[in-house]
Amino acid sequence: MRYLLPAFVAFFFIIEGTWFQVFFPPSTEQDLHWVPRFAFVTVILISIYRGSRSGIFYGMGLGLFQDVVYSTVIGIYTFSYALVGYMAGLIFVQSNQDHLSYCSLLLWLWRR
């Protein structure tokens, strides 16, 4: 069970680059391009439920992989994902039972 969460994040990370582009390829007809961020949303959820500390580590790990595998410059995603992971964890600290705040955050993310 310990490895379930990392495996979950890894699964979504792989899906973003592989399955998504095969089944929903962007086309010239649409102005809107869908960019999947499943793994990132998962990291935010983990951070909300388990606190800032796990948020930082999951964010940093995911960001590092994102940098190395999909782009050429290392550090951008590593830093920003870790930061956002930390920030998302603050919601957990401040409003322990207030589901409304993180639901609204998630809705905002999905709409992007």
Binding site: E16, G17, Q21, P26, H33, W34, V35, Y70, S71
Partner: peptide
């Protein structure tokens, strides 16, 4: 082709 990210769609593939 094993990976292609939609946000780097026109740039790189693996």
């Amino acid at each position: 082709v094993i990976d292609r990210q939609p946000d780097r769609w026109t740039e790189t593939i693996g």
